[in-house]
Write a protein that binds this DNA or RNA. Structure first.
Lengths: 150, 150
DNA sequence: CGCAATTCAATTGTGCGCAACTTAAATTAT
DNA sequence: ATAATTTAAGTTGCGCACAATTGAATTGCG
């Protein structure tokens, strides 16, 4: 059983890397990474957002997001501005170029859909459920405790 | 359908990161990363191997493996030696410390098993099949071609 | 009000993942 | 035999993931 679980983890890791590579190839003409694409998807679907909310959506901290957003800003797809009310907050806003990129990249989900090799929706639902269950329960594993050797 | 596939990819990415974090926590007392652990698992189960074969097993290239193996060597878990017959090849061998680490880390798969939240073996099998299918078909997505827009 | 605790973003540092390139050795072809 | 090709491992460079720290702003509590 334990061996199977190690296999599940490795398969997860392999599948995730294969997926990232696929997105990277599709996004290459725009010089975008998969994570940068995820941020753009979040902004397209949810509108402008502060850094903290983007981080909550994608489960990324400022150590990842700050330099990533700087690069998206350099490419002129987003702008960052300190909030007027609370100047700790930095609001992220799509530029016109960032907005119009949505149509340019509209072909990507369909190409990825082929890549999932998921024939029917029923399989996809089960897979999603399994992945969500794993994500949730992996987060339960506690930091190793000096006292409880085991 | 396309949106679901984007969701599958993101869920994959999230589950994979959650899993890596879980391993990282469990491996923290030994200062090992998940990828370093994978290399050790490969050596424990298959015996000594040249770098190229480790790379084939884990789908990692020398750009990742060379520095990783250097760090495992510095921790005295492995040794590297140029092959006598073919001096392009570098053979990786477990040290006594690397061998005995296997027992020390024997508790980890069981703890990860809890983390997968997979109740029965049947679910695990289906999940494995889905992940392998995704890995295989994602590798089919071709590099974007200048000529064929779309 | 005044100060401690909290929150938010950025920075620093480490290691992985991967593309591109280098170097050296072995293989193949001529 | 030697030139061309291929193979193996290493190096460089970039971006992400994440822990730890910093600094500034805000909130909360006495």
């Amino acid at each position: 059983m334990a061996i199977v679980d190690d296999m599940v983890c490795f398969s997860l890791y392999s599948a995730s890397r294969a997926t990232t590579r696929a997105y990277t190839e599709l996004l290459a003409p725009w010089q975008l990474t998969y994570t940068q694409y995820l941020v753009l998807v979040a902004l397209w679907s949810e509108g402008d957002k502060p850094v903290r909310e983007i981080g909550e959506m994608l489960q990324l901290d400022s150590g990842t997001l700050s330099p990533l957003l700087r690069r998206l800003e350099q490419k002129d797809f987003i702008e960052r501005q300190r909030d007027d009310q609370d100047s700790r907050v930095v609001n992220v806003r799509l530029t016109p170029a960032g907005v119009s990129l949505r149509k340019e990249l509209a072909h990507i989900p369909a190409q990825i859909a082929c890549g999932t090799g998921l024939s029917d929706m029923e399989n996809a639902k089960e897979l999603l459920a399994s992945l969500h269950r794993i994500t949730a329960s992996m987060q339960q594993i506690p930091a190793p405790d000096q006292a409880s050797g085991q």
